[in-house]
């Protein structure tokens, strides 16, 4: 190709990219840079003061409350991820082994809840786990409890709700890996003398790892940044990163501290994204 047409082509490429790049720059890059700058400013009564300070960050480390928030948030995300793997694997495996005529329905039942509004799904859990919710009412009716159990407005509700909201992603991710496994590998293992448990551990599980990892990173990041579920089900009792950012920004109007917290979340999210790419590369057997 001649230099002239090459140049013309480049020009066309940038013209096509222009609107998209401007859109992202204006609405994502500039605001995130602004946010980063604010996290280094101080404030007084909702007013952002000029000058540069690291106080917003140092206080995150020094202040025990924030350390606790980080720990609880990470723990919740990890717990939800593990629960999603444990609950998701049997379903994904059932889907992968199901005959074609059933597979569609099984997929549908997993994916359909994703299309229902997250606020609505979380509200459903409030009805189930609340003080006068389904679980407590049923147990009281059966005479098993005197006092209602505290299932919402705390860590328990947050974990249960978060697991249900993000579980479909894990199932879809693991199922896509399992469906891709050649049945003959499983059969080969059986013919070579391995029982179902051994075949699962030595063949199925390693080959499902790309799906498990992709699903885990996705669920972990989604739960880490989750806002609706902690807000509605965790209540004020649970110290959650997203809720703390919200409270600092919109209730206490301390934008510098809210943005400093947000920066931590952003860095972790980007780190996870990079980590996922690297991890998945390790499991590319067919490369």
């Amino acid at each position: 190709m001649s230099r002239a047409t090459e140049g013309k082509r480049n020009w066309a490429v940038w013209a096509l990219l222009g609107p998209g790049l401007a859109f992202i720059a204006l609405l994502l890059i500039v605001p995130v840079i602004d946010m980063t700058l604010i996290s280094f400013r101080s404030e007084s009564f909702g007013q952002i003061l000029p000058g540069f300070t690291l106080a917003n960050y140092t206080s995150l480390v020094r202040d025990g409350t924030y350390v606790q928030i980080f720990l609880q948030t990470f723990l919740a995300a990890a717990l939800v991820t593990v629960l999603c793997i444990l609950l998701g694997f049997p379903v994904a495996s059932l889907i992968a082994d199901a005959p074609a005529k059933w597979r569609g329905l099984l997929y549908f039942l997993v994916a359909a809840p994703l299309l229902v509004n997250t606020v609505v799904r979380t509200y459903g859990w409030l009805l189930i786990l609340g003080r006068k919710g389904l679980v407590n009412e049923t147990l009281a009716w059966a005479g098993l409890i005197e006092q209602p159990l505290a299932l919402s407005g705390n860590y328990v509700g947050l974990i249960i709700g978060g697991t249900q909201v993000f579980l479909p992603f894990m199932i879809l991710s693991i199922a896509s890996s399992l469906v891709a496994i050649d049945r003959r590998l499983i059969e080969s293992s059986a013919i070579l003398g391995a029982g179902p448990v051994r075949t699962f551990i030595n063949v199925t599980l390693p080959l499902a790892m790309p799906g498990v990892i992709a699903g885990s990173v996705l669920v972990f990041s989604l739960m880490l940044g989750a806002f609706v579920t902690p807000l509605i089900l965790g209540g004020t009792a649970v110290k959650y990163l997203s809720v703390a950012i919200f409270t600092d920004a919109l209730v206490l109007f301390n934008l510098p501290r809210a943005t400093a917290l947000a920066m931590v979340l952003l860095l972790v999210a980007l780190l996870l994204y990079a980590l996922q790419k690297r991890l998945l590369r390790r499991f590319e057997y067919y490369a």
Partner: peptide, 17 residues
């Protein structure tokens, strides 16, 4: 697994990992 047989498939079916 209890029959002590060997099998080779068209698609090789080696464990890729």
């Amino acid at each position: 697994r209890e029959r002590n047989l060997g099998m080779v498939f068209q698609q090789y079916s080696l464990f890729p990992h």
